[in-house]
Amino acid sequence: MMAYLARRLAYLLPILLGVNLLTFGLFFFVHGPDSMARTILGERHVDAEMIERWKREHGYDLPRLWNPSARGVEKLTRTIFWQKNVPLMALEFGRSDFDNHAIAEAIRARMGPSLKVTVPMFMVSLVTTVVLAMWIAFHRNTPLDAAVLVLCVVLMSISTLFYIIGGQYLFARLLRWFPFSGYGEGWAGARFVLMPVLIGVLAGMGGQIRYNRTVFLEEIHRDYIRTARAKGLGEGAVLFRHALKNAMIPILTSVVVTIPFLIMGNLLLENFFGIPGLGSYVVDAIQKQDFAVVRAMVYLGTLLYVAGLWLVDVAYTLVDPRVRLG
């Protein structure tokens, strides 16, 4: 089993390398450092000297991939690729292009607030969608089931923005249950987080319940359920003991993949509700055209997602005896 997991890890590393190369190509071959400088400094009042100065300050006054004027191994190392992109693999994110702050520190500081929103959202969503899906699977083929299905499709068809805007309007303005936005540290700050979590859960519920229900129904039609009934088990035991355990395998594994990514935070929620997490970090960087931050976040996001993929393999070996012992 360990060998299998190690092999899966080895399979994922070249992917990370590929991503690194891809982001490098994207960021530095589409826009050379010159136009980057121009964008940040503001299109108009720049001249060549200001551009060069900016490039020197931020370390972009080097050739991209290959430095012919250097000597020996420095032909490779005194390049933008080596200085800026390779360190990403070691999680050294460098400094911002906009105001030169240390990106890694900012990430560390902002991880907390993001997690404060995403972790509760994850757990509440998981429990509620599984329970609701099981309940509706129990009542399958009834008018209630049909109604819930229609409701789920409708909920899925609404943009997250509407949930946010509408939710904020409903809960903060009309009902006055929560504050509009803002953030506070510690437990006192919990009230700022409740509404984003609630809205986040609501926004994703439709699709997730439908998916879970599909998984349950697929299991219910399998042969071993017929055997369970032939043994004399009631519908409840059949669903909650036999079907559930099998259904949890695909459900859990589809959910586990998102766990590492929880750190990244939800961009829209954080921006709307003023949560100083990694999501709003990205949004700010977009608005400021801070390429270094965007680059770092893209890489970090990929790393976390890939970690999630590996976590899925781990989950499978733990949860599915066919993988563990087959």
């Binding site: 990370l16 891809l22 990244m264 977009i286 965007v294 680059r295 893209v298 997602y305 993929l309």
Partner: peptide, 23 residues
Amino acid sequence: QYVYSVLASIPTVLLVIAFMVLF
């Protein structure tokens, strides 16, 4: 498989952001 795995590993929203910031 490698090509599409690399592309698919970048979370869509981030890739879109990166792309749009650049273009």
